[in-house]
């Protein structure tokens, strides 16, 4: 087990209901070597946490059905409470950040962000070296 993990590509669970954002984020993550599973809502994402065993979850705040906060709370209360979670939201939502931090978010990013910033955050959360040029 220990000998196989360093060579295996990392897994990112991307939870984003806006298809064009999901397409762009999935593309840059895959181009960076990640295996990405994309989910448009919280319920399917939570089911996939058990199924795909991701290294990092990239989670939008505003989702249909369960909100990003509810998904985060369920992850923290589930079998993998230490799973790194990166939350995304629009700027000016200070209360969103406070709420996410109270729920135990690993990192919080505000839109708009650059591709390089997103990749650096995912790499850092997965415990990998950050690439110099990831744009």
């Amino acid at each position: 087990m220990t000998e196989a993990e360093p060579a295996a590509p990392g897994r990112v669970l991307l939870v984003e209901d806006e298809p064009n954002i999901a397409t762009a984020l999935a593309f840059i993550l895959q181009r960076d070597g990640w295996r990405v599973s994309t989910h448009p809502d919280g319920a399917t994402a939570l089911a996939a946490v058990d199924r795909h065993a991701p290294d990092v979850v990239v989670l939008d705040v505003m989702l249909p059905g369960k909100s990003g906060f509810e998904v985060l709370a369920e992850i923290r209360g589930g079998p993998r409470p230490d799973l790194p979670v990166l939350m995304l939201t629009a700027k000016g939502q200070a209360k969103d950040r406070e709420r996410a931090e109270a729920l135990g978010v690993s990192r919080f990013m505000t839109k708009p962000f650059s591709n390089a910033e997103l990749l650096a955050a995912v790499q850092q959360l997965a415990g990998r070296a950050v690439a110099d040029d990831a744009s």
Binding site: N20, I21, A24, I28, M62, A90, K111, S114, N115, S135
Partner: peptide, 21 residues
């Protein structure tokens, strides 16, 4: 404003992909 910033974000990501790939 949230809608605007989300759209700016995806335009920026997509344009950046095209420019760097």
């Amino acid at each position: 404003m949230h809608e605007l910033l989300s759209t700016v974000s995806v335009v920026r990501s997509t344009a950046s992909i095209l420019a760097s790939t």
